[in-house]
Design a protein around this nucleic acid. Structure first.
Lengths: 253, 253
DNA sequence: CGAGCGATTGACGTCAATCAACGAATGTGG
DNA sequence: CCACATTCGTTGATTGACGTCAATCGCTCG
């Protein structure tokens, strides 16, 4: 396996800020990445009835907090989020980064409370999906039910990939895997797969990868020295994709 | 948060080997830990109709392999399993240990193929839950649907806890967290929470915790020297639960 | 323009990995 | 039943990767 991630069919990305009064799932350009995959138009309409509310989250603000009552899932429409869990003694761990078309809040189902924080890394907007209603609708439409289950399962598989990364890989391999994941997801959304702008700090990358920010920074510099990529602060440019892939796949020896 | 794990109400454990011809969920002593939580007797009967098949898995054998077609979930009746993912270059990572009442195979939903190996660490038996039928039944019974979603969500939360452990904790803390998790789950199944027999090798523990087997062994020895526990091969005895908890909660400084 | 956060880089320390040897337990075949 | 093989576990010495501490640089935004 190849350090799992959310593979998805391609679709162009949406634009932020100017929020239309009503954006139906049926006309959303993320529908092939999101919950509506496979629904026919009648089903889509029903789903739209449910996803009535939108919410914008300014950069740095929480979409939800750990411990908060769980009532809805959120589909990212525009923007970028991180989720993180924390231990009593103040350590915290970024558990994921979410971009357009990805679902937030699945952790909350288990205990009716959110068990992590979700924070916008740039001005973002989400669709609010009231959870009880989603359960209801997915009892009506087996396609929706199955798609929802697939999304939860995909999250589990992704987490297992991260566990492999955290448990077995060295700093270089972790960062390479992270970059490949990120570019693949961006590519699936119609962006360039070689040029990207990071939405998160070195510290946040480090937290996700189980590294310190200095190590992330040094590893970026090493990649640049080796001609694998160009690094200008958060502006990245992949020069040697195969080289990065080789780093992930070939064991260090 | 406290390095999440599958908390569950208590229930005594079943006995192996002599497999009854028919064991109904309704009379299973794991029903308060497993899928049937909250079902009324009519619903239980329907679920029983679905869970017709049992399977025994001798120690060391696979319940399923990575890449195999996904058709059913498995509920552990007796015994003990590990699940592991592997990368191309041969490294592999234990992603979890499963005991009675826990579900295996959730990773398979996302792609219709299992994405990990499940291996019995002792002679074990499982209930086979055909997945398509489970989806059907959970469209009929919202309680079953909700319980199933909770189980998937719990798996996600558990994985996030492991990510925190792998990303932030030192060897001692990881092992302490692991032991506390294990004893809590055993306790929930009616076993002593101070005495336990490990079903897995040092290497498997190490793989789960992102450590080498020598480090696991050394850390066990240190715990013993410090009077936290008694270690005789795989036979463990917790002497100072609070001491272990302190290790997990208090940052090293 | 200056304050402040984020990023980079260097010197040094630490924890766990690696390499290696040995001991204990379990299982196999003569 | 014992010799032997094999796997699992323990322990020590050394190495190496990443963390820590610290100084500096450079954006970005009031």
């Amino acid at each position: 396996m190849s350090v799992n991630l959310n593979a998805a069919p391609s679709a162009p990305a949406a634009n932020a800020s100017l929020e239309p009064l009503k954006v139906a799932c049926a006309s959303c350009n993320l529908r092939e990445l999101c919950l509506p995959v496979g629904l026919n138009s009648g089903e889509l309409q029903k789903l739209d009835g449910l996803v009535a509310q939108r919410r914008t989250v300014p950069r740095g603000e929480h979409l939800f907090h750990n411990g908060e009552r769980f009532e809805a899932l959120y589909a990212v429409r525009t923007g970028f989020f991180k989720t993180c869990v924390g231990s009593e003694d103040g350590r915290d761990q970024v558990t994921g980064f979410q971009m357009a078309g990805e679902l937030l809040g699945l952790d909350g189902i288990s205990s009716d409370r959110h068990s992590c924080d979700a924070v916008a890394l740039e001005d973002s907007s989400v669709c609010v999906i009231p959870y009880t209603q989603l359960e209801g609708l997915s009892r009506e439409f087996s396609v929706l039910q199955h798609q929802f289950h697939k999304i939860m399962s995909r999250e589990i598989v992704r987490d297992h990939g991260v566990m492999l990364l955290l448990g077995n890989m060295r700093a270089e391999e972790r960062l390479a895997a992270f970059l490949l994941n990120l570019t693949q997801r961006l590519h699936a959304r119609g962006f360039s797969s070689s040029s990207l702008v990071l939405r998160m700090t070195r510290e946040e990358i480090g937290s996700y990868l189980g590294l310190k920010l200095e190590t992330v920074s040094r590893t970026f510099s090493r990649f640049q020295d080796e001609g694998l990529m160009e690094v200008k602060q958060r502006q990245l440019r992949i020069l040697d994709l195969a080289g990065l892939q080789a780093l992930v796949n070939n064991s260090p020896c």
